[in-house]
């Protein structure tokens, strides 16, 4: 593993990983914890009883988490700015990548929230997903050094595509075509949203 690198210039190589990690952890725990908390305290019932469609309510919830995730992304960026020159970073693309990572990981958090009954369960579930994802998505271990048999798994993770865009925007080191990545991430977002809605309708209204 190449976790420990020489300081200085390679901080730039580490930055995409740190950003993705902040977004991933921020968004997944935000929804997984707040929703299971509201559900166990029954205040979630109040939302289900209001004359607001479930999809509108879910959209409002995830918007909050996405905004939170985007703020999280800038914590490592601000720190990095003290040590390295960020002049070469393509900010527009980076922001887009952060947004897409925030959306997909928020929806993963929602999926966990829908499946878990308690806050504790949600936390455990989240870690079960998050850590393997971090190591399989090419952030810390380049995809090319992963064993051949796990690589297909990497390509099933939305984070792999988000990471690739980030790598391109910050260090100019992307593997895939950016358009492909955007497309795949949007497809993941739409798919996850529909799965979440379906599960919510099935599980929350008994």
């Amino acid at each position: 593993m190449q976790l420990i690198r020489s300081p200085g210039g390679s901080l730039l190589e580490l930055l995409p990983g740190l950003i993705a990690m902040s977004v991933l952890f921020g968004t997944t725990s935000m929804l997984a914890v707040t929703i299971t908390f509201e559900r166990s305290g029954r205040s979630f019932d109040r939302l289900l009883l209001a004359p607001i469609s479930v999809s509108t309510m879910v959209l409002a919830k995830i918007t909050g988490a996405i905004v939170f995730g985007i703020f999280n992304a800038f914590v490592p960026v601000i720190f990095a700015a003290f040590f390295v020159n960020l002049g070469a970073v393509n900010w527009g693309v980076m922001l887009l990548a952060v947004l897409l990572i925030a959306i997909t990981s928020t929806l993963l958090g929602l999926l966990i929230a829908v499946s878990a009954k308690q806050v504790f369960e949600a936390q455990t579930f989240s870690n079960f997903f998050r850590f393997p994802m971090l190591f399989l998505c090419g952030l810390f271990v380049p995809l090319s050094s992963l064993p051949v048999f796990v690589r297909p798994v990497s390509f099933l993770l939305p984070l792999t595509y988000g990471t690739d865009i980030l790598n391109g925007a910050i260090a100019g080191a992307n593997l895939l075509s950016p358009m492909l990545c955007y497309g795949v991430l949007l497809a993941f977002a739409a798919g996850l949203f529909l799965v979440c809605l379906h599960n919510i309708n099935r599980k929350w209204i008994l």
């Binding site: 305290g41 029954r42 205040s43 979630f44 019932d45 109040r46 009883l49 209001a50 004359p51």
Partner: peptide, 13 residues
Amino acid sequence: QAIMGIVPDESNL
């Protein structure tokens, strides 16, 4: 639901 008011057995505030 728009015309309903609901007081559940356990408060959900």
